[in-house]
Amino acid sequence: MTENGLVVSHVYKSYGAINVINDLSFTVKEHSITALVGPNGAGKTTVFNLITGTDPLDSGMVSWKGTVLTGLKPYVIARHGVARTYQDLRLFGSMTVRENVQVVMETSFKDGFGHRKKMIRERTDSILKSVGLLGVGSRRVEELSYAEKKFLSLARLLATTADLLLLDEPASGLDSTSQGDFVTFVRSLPTHAKTVCLVEHNLELVRNLAEEVIFMDSGYALRKGRPEDIMKDPELGAIYFGGVHEDE
C-alpha cells in the first residue's frame, strides 16, 4: 500500500563497504516545498540518485503519487513525472540554449501535443523568457555565464510535464540577486501544481522557501520539521557546522 506524494521507505544504499543511506524514510507532501539539509556526505544527492533511478537501491521502496518507482529505469521514472537538476548542471553541451529546452519538451510532449512544432516553439520562448534567457537562445551552452547555465538547468525542468521537481543545490554559486530570481522562480511553480524537493546548503534560502526541512546525517533522516524549528536546534547546528555526531 503506497501513500500519495513522495514516499521514501526504509531505503538502504552502500557503495562497496561504505553505507551511504541507512534505513532512510521520509515523505514529501504533494504541492509542497521540502528541503533536504545536512553536512557534506550526509547522502542528500544520493537520495536524488535513488529516487530518479540513476543508482539502484539496495533495499527499500520509493513511490511517487502511489506509483512504485523502485527498480524502474530512469527514463521510465521521468515519464512518471519526476525531473531533477544536478549540482554539476549536466547541460547538453553541444546544443544551443534553445535546443536544450526544446529537446526536453519534445520528449515530454511526445504524444498529443497538437500543432506540435508551433506550440513547442512558443512554449520554448515562453520558458526561456521566464528565466531571462530568451535573448541568448541561439548561443551555445559553453558561451553562457555560470548563473545563466544554472537558470538553463531550471528551464529544462519547466519544459517537462513533471510534477515532482528535485533541485540539487540550485542556488550554489549564485549571487544574492540571482538567488532572489531563483526564489521567485520556485514560488511561481505552484501555479504549475509542482512539488519541489531541494538539496541546499544556503540555509537562509531554505528558511525563505521551504515549508518543511528534513535534516540528514550519515544517511539517516535525523529530524523533520519547520525550517525555523530545525535551524534553532543546537544539536543539529553542531552536526552541520562542527562535524559533531550524535555518538560523540
Binding site: R84, R90, V103
Partner: peptide, 24 residues
Amino acid sequence: SPWGRAIIAGGDDEVAASAFGMRT
C-alpha cells in the same frame, strides 16, 4: 529533427538525457 536532437542529447550526457525521459 526532434529525434536527432534526442540522439545528440544522449551523446552529450546520457545520464541527464535518460533522466528527462529519453531512451538513449
